[in-house]
Design a protein around this nucleic acid. Structure first.
Lengths: 136, 136
DNA sequence: CCGAACTTGCAACAGGGTTGCAGAATATTT
DNA sequence: AAATATTCTGCAACCCTGTTGCAAGTTCGG
């Protein structure tokens, strides 16, 4: 409980029940969540718009990051140390085609790629789709 | 002109002006296109829905493939030899943060990744964001 | 406990994407 | 070349995602 408040405080955000609930939902379920997932979990307590705004705020403050997906955007907790200034995400995302869950593989880094002359890469996003250990 | 018809024929599709126009738009502009791009280019001639359905059909037949993007889905021509049965896409996509264009880097394959035990990968999707040669 | 600053809910909107159906166009058969 | 079956298209309507403006409510520092 206090941990939630601390996390918010560290990122210079006021503690509100919506933010605490969204944050704890991310912590409890461990996979990447879409706005729809959160609305399903918390929609009776909070307005759609508030959840959107909470996600946007968390994104800006470096609490969560975007996860690309072939059927829409999801969000997942940043491991540590992301802030408003710098996001550091070079890990791999895995989407299971059986259970539909998308997860961060925090330990696996995206391998280096030798780009042709002239390309100046800044961000990397690797999504692997397949079957996860639970469904295998 | 005839090339367009042939492509459609190979994939067992009837030749219609909409399909020819969509296909030639993909061929002329070489980057990945969103539905909105196509609507901008062809919207006066064809209904929104028809363009959506054309994209869906092309996807199913293996003429185009999805390109993930942090701000929405795009589509790009399949290099060769994709069909209804098998899609083969392990190349890299590069999105320029300056001009906004997304392109396939057909020649660059996604490097192999050693996944933990139990993961059974099927498809790979790597998006690199940065500045492209034209904007550098 | 007061006021400034920030958050929330509501209403309204814009855009992306889908479905059902009737009419039009295409391909096929004769 | 005409008739037929099949497939496409346009229209209307709809749902979902995401955003904005504004008034009312909440948080936090003094």
């Amino acid at each position: 409980m206090d941990q939630l408040r601390d996390t918010l405080k560290v990122h210079h955000l006021r503690t509100t029940t919506c933010r605490e609930d969204v944050l704890s939902t991310f912590i409890n379920r461990k996979n990447a969540l879409s706005h729809g997932d959160l609305e399903g979990a918390l929609g009776e307590n909070y307005d759609r718009v508030t959840i959107y705004r909470t996600l946007k705020t968390f994104l800006e403050k470096g609490i969560i990051h975007k996860v690309l997906d072939d059927e829409g955007l999801r969000y997942a907790l940043c491991s540590h140390s992301c802030s408003e200034e710098k996001h550091q995400h070079d890990h791999i995302h895995f989407k299971c085609s059986a259970c539909g869950e998308t997860n961060c593989l925090e330990n696996l880094h995206i391998p280096a790629v030798q780009l042709p002359e002239g390309y100046n890469p800044e961000h990397f996003n690797l999504l692997i789709q397949g079957v996860c250990p639970k469904c295998n």
